[in-house]
């Protein structure tokens, strides 16, 4: 499958957005980790804005950034949300309440706990009745989300938004499932080249033993290997460099997703 990346959103430690992150990932600026700052999306009405969790803030911020780069109307773009852990903070808070005597689960927490909460808030924020799905594939959630978004874009013959994100769990679950830092990235994938296209990518899925493509510096490699959504970093680095590169991202059951990235 061949597609074009028409827009990118980015939020990670020391990578606050694509404009700042691209020269760092291209190796033209020095990477310095810094805390991720999450702000509520201005697109949501005040009542919904108050209910936004950090996961929703992250997903909406990067989704909006990618849509703005691509110059498309979010209302008309189907979306795929991919995350390994979903909203771990909300889930752990419910687990703590259920372990107490009272068991009074807050209705807002309950509806925020679903894996597709960011997809729901995105649809409300952008007034989009387009299809939106939310997938999970453990460590392979980014590559799986990318495959699904690419399939949808090719099937429908129009641009699709991919939003991939993961955040650390609170302590009780962090010990069992450590996720390094907050990270999210969003891509607008289009079956057609446009004036906005940043790169062309060709995806191929198949069995393979090749090692995953790593990041060249220790700090970025720690981020890539420590957060499922950050498996996107080699792809983002190739787009930022504007170079032709081929890379591998591991998928389930011994499969590899091979990505050939080239200037549009």
């Amino acid at each position: 499958m061949r597609l074009y990346i028409d827009g990118i959103g980015l939020s990670g430690p020391g990578l606050p957005d694509w404009a700042t992150g691209a020269p760092i990932l291209a190796g033209r600026s020095v990477y310095e980790a810094a805390p991720v700052v999450l702000v509520p999306s201005p697109l949501l009405p005040p009542a919904e804005r108050r209910r936004m969790t950090d996961t929703v803030k992250l997903a909406l911020a990067i989704g909006s950034e990618a849509v703005a780069y691509a110059g498309c109307r979010a209302e008309h773009v189907p979306s795929v949300f991919a995350s390994s852990g979903g909203d771990g903070v909300t889930i752990v808070s419910i687990l703590e309440i259920l372990a107490s005597e009272q068991r009074e689960v807050s209705p807002t927490r309950f509806h925020n706990s679903v894996h597709n909460a960011p997809s729901g808030y995105w649809s409300i924020a952008t007034h989009s009745r387009e299809s939106s799905t939310s997938v999970c594939a453990y460590d392979y959630s980014f590559s799986t989300g990318l495959l699904e978004a690419a399939s949808l874009a090719v099937s429908e013959g129009r641009p699709v938004l991919l939003v991939s994100y993961d955040m650390p769990y609170p302590p009780a679950l962090d010990a069992a499932r450590p996720i390094f830092s907050i990270f999210g990235t969003a891509l607008i994938l289009s079956p057609e080249r446009s004036g906005r296209s940043l790169a062309a990518i060709t995806l191929a899925l198949g069995p393979g033993d090749a090692a995953e493509t790593a990041m060249p510096t220790a700090a970025l490699e720690r981020l890539r290997s420590g957060n499922p959504a950050a498996r996107a970093l080699p792809l983002l680095a190739a787009v930022a460099e504007g170079a032709a590169r081929t890379m591998a991202i591991r998928m389930m059951a011994g499969n590899l997703l091979t990505l050939a990235v080239a200037p549009p």
């Binding site: 390994s84 852990g85 979903g86 679903v114 894996h115 597709n116 997809s119 939106s132 799905t133 939310s134 997938v135 999970c136 594939a137 453990y138 959630s141 799986t144 495959l147 699904e148 679950l173 069992a176 499932r177 899925l205 069995p207 998928m251 389930m252 059951a253 011994g254 499969n255």
Partner: peptide, 25 residues
Amino acid sequence: HSTYSVADFVQHVLGLDGPALVVSA
């Protein structure tokens, strides 16, 4: 616990190696 666990389990039990995912919507 992982939302993916049911696809992972089914894929292993059935001895399948194709693409797999969980939709959680």
